[in-house]
């Protein structure tokens, strides 16, 4: 009997990896096809980005710069946060710039702008500007140049217009006005902003990073070198929720559902509960839907670790005997 048990564990240890792949696929497909509501709690680094951006509401002498430093490989994590931040800016009349330094990020940047502005009447050059793609080799010179003059550093936007002539630039000179830089990265690009823009000009820097990099950034959050961070799909889900709860908050006004933005409040976000099925546009809830599958997948990984270890310890005991 004991020998049979050992055989079972031996077999478990030598299980063909393709069965494992099948379980992984099912663990992700099922929660996506059979949706359920789950509660995303919001962390402080995400709140800090929201509060900082929201403080620019309606101001012509403030702007946010979004730097897209990733390609399609990490789009699943970073794209929803980019769309959520752009929505926040468009909804609250916050001036926003976009730029990228790798070719493969350029269409993602266009796609994010295209997606976010669908529900808003915003005008390029007035409400936002896409600075477009600039080669990686001039990343550093542009980061440093922006400390003196943003328009001079980037020269032209994506449409070939001279940036200094654009209406949006009237009250924007350097990092004093372009008061927040958010780098969306799957690489160390965010550290260039910390090392050069923050250290030399005191620019406020925030990061939207893939979860792989998130744990490394906590020392920079503590020092304030990063004012906030969105970490992976969860960070994106948190920001989606913040935008829904505050920036696009809906109330019944004269019997009509109207968007009535409200100020950030820790108490409100703590108790807020938004039913995903109430959100009509699927793009606005991509990350939160993904978090359902993420939950199941995490449990699956923990079970894998547990089962693998049980097999390992049983075998070890057998070998000792």
């Amino acid at each position: 009997m004991a020998e049979q048990k050992m055989n079972f564990f031996d077999k478990m240890q030598a299980l063909d990896r393709r069965y494992i792949y099948l379980v992984v696929a099912l663990a992700i497909i099922l929660p996506l096809v059979i949706p359920f509501n789950s509660r995303t709690y919001v962390t402080e680094p995400s709140e800090n980005i929201y509060k900082k951006i929201d403080s620019f509401t309606g101001r012509k002498d403030r702007a946010v710069l979004m730097c897209f430093s990733h390609d399609a490989s990490t789009m699943a994590e970073l794209f929803p946060m980019e769309v959520a931040i752009l929505r926040h800016c468009f909804q609250r009349n916050i001036q926003v710039f976009t730029i990228c330094f790798i070719p493969a990020a350029k269409p993602l940047m266009d796609y994010a702008l295209q997606t976010a502005k669908e529900d808003y009447t915003v005008q390029s050059g007035v409400d936002y500007v896409n600075f477009g793609y600039k080669p990686w080799g001039i990343f550093l010179p542009i980061v440093l140049g922006m400390g003196d003059d943003v328009a001079k550093a980037v020269e032209t936007d994506d449409e070939g217009r001279i940036v200094s002539n654009l209406e949006i630039m009237k009250e924007i000179k350097n990092y004093n006005e372009m008061n927040l830089v958010i780098d969306f990265a799957a690489s160390a690009a965010v550290y260039i902003w910390i090392e050069y823009a923050r250290a030399r000009f005191g620019a406020n820097v925030a990061a939207g990073v893939t979860a792989v990099m998130a744990a490394d950034n906590f020392p920079y959050l503590q020092t304030g070198q990063l004012i906030g961070m969105l970490a992976g799909l969860k960070g994106a889900a948190e920001y989606e929720k913040l935008v829904d709860v505050f920036a696009t908050h809906k109330e019944m006004v004269n019997g009509v559902e109207t968007v009535v933005p409200r100020e950030f409040s820790k108490e409100v976000i703590k108790d807020s509960w938004i039913k995903l099925s109430d959100i009509k546009n699927p793009v606005y809830k991509t990350a939160r839907i993904g978090m359902n599958a993420q939950t199941v997948a995490h449990i699956m990984i923990i079970v894998f670790i547990a089962v693998g270890n049980i097999g390992y310890f049983v075998n070890r005991k057998k070998n000792k005997n």
């Binding site: 992700i28 949706p35 699943a76 792989v212 992976g232 839907i289 599958a293 995490h298």
Partner: peptide, 30 residues
């Protein structure tokens, strides 16, 4: 901590692709 986050990251990437296949392509997501 980094490993925990890495698992999350890798799974997220797969979720993105499955969302495309199940949603945009096969329209199986509600």
């Amino acid at each position: 901590a980094s490993f925990g986050y890495t698992v999350m990251a890798r799974i997220s990437l797969l979720i993105g692709r499955i969302q495309f296949l199940m949603g945009d392509w096969l329209h199986l997501m509600k």
